[in-house]
């Protein structure tokens, strides 16, 4: 790991610690008590998980553009698309889990089919299916097929968002109504902002690590193929298929 990445990691950890401290010392919420503190983790993960799909879409387009022009850049774009899709699933999973805990604390139920939760679940499903396609497809095709699906998924997200909104606004509003983050107390704002920054930095760090790992795997796979073609015994690269 290069030195600047270590420095970045140290910086991120410091912000994470400050975020944790702010979240734990924010004033206790009136009705939910300490359980509401999961909100400081839920909100950043939920918001940031909507950023990664855009990165995935851009990387997918970039892959298709470079595919026949510049193989190395195309491979880099593909690695980035994979990393951002995995980060989408990771952050959305955490967002769903913490949201469910929040729902149990605030509404007394683990899950409700309201507009936001349904859209969010659909987003999660889309990118899980993207990762499944990647694991199912033949090695030579993975990049092309998944970049096409990435574009389809990105087109689908706004359509999903709008149609679920129409669906839920047509129906009577759920009894528990109000938005979770509508009008939070100003005393809780520092905790929200610090955690926002911390988890954004952490997400960017994981994205970078995953990208680097995938690039290394690509290089090893290429080296393995070259060694195989030159008739040498490829050793020590079993993992690089």
């Amino acid at each position: 790991m290069p030195r600047w990445a270590l420095a970045y990691l140290a910086f991120t950890v410091v912000i994470l610690v400050i975020g944790f401290q702010k979240a734990m010392t924010a004033p206790t919420e009136a009705t939910m008590g300490n359980l509401y503190r999961v909100f400081f983790y839920h909100l950043p993960h939920a918001i940031i998980s909507f950023v990664f799909p855009y990165l995935n879409c851009v990387a997918s387009f970039a892959y298709l553009y470079w595919r026949s022009r510049d193989t190395d850049r195309a491979a880099a774009a593909d690695a980035f698309a994979l990393a951002s899709a995995e980060m989408t699933v990771l952050y959305a999973s955490i967002g769903l889990a913490t949201g469910s805990i929040w729902g149990r604390a605030a509404w007394g139920i683990w899950w409700a089919w309201d507009a936001r939760m349904t859209t969010y679940l659909l987003l999660w499903l889309l990118y899980v299916s993207y990762l499944l396609l990647r694991s199912f497809s033949a090695p030579g095709q993975t990049a092309v097929l998944s970049s096409v699906l990435g574009i389809f998924a990105a087109i689908d997200v706004p359509i999903c968002f709008m149609s679920i909104r129409w669906y839920r606004t047509q129906h009577p509003a759920p009894v528990f109504g109000g938005d979770a983050d509508s009008g939070i107390d100003p005393s809780m704002l520092p905790a929200v902002l610090w955690n926002m920054a911390a988890w954004a930095l952490w997400g960017a760090f994981l994205l970078g690590v995953r990208y680097a790992v995938e690039r290394r795997r690509q290089r090893q796979a290429a080296a393995y193929a070259v060694a195989f073609l030159e008739g040498e015994e490829p050793t020590g690269l079993e993992g690089a298929r």
Binding site: S129, Y130, C160
Partner: peptide, 9 residues
């Protein structure tokens, strides 16, 4: 697995 999520809307 890939058709259903995209077809949801």
């Amino acid at each position: 697995l890939i058709l259903l999520p995209v077809s949801m809307p």
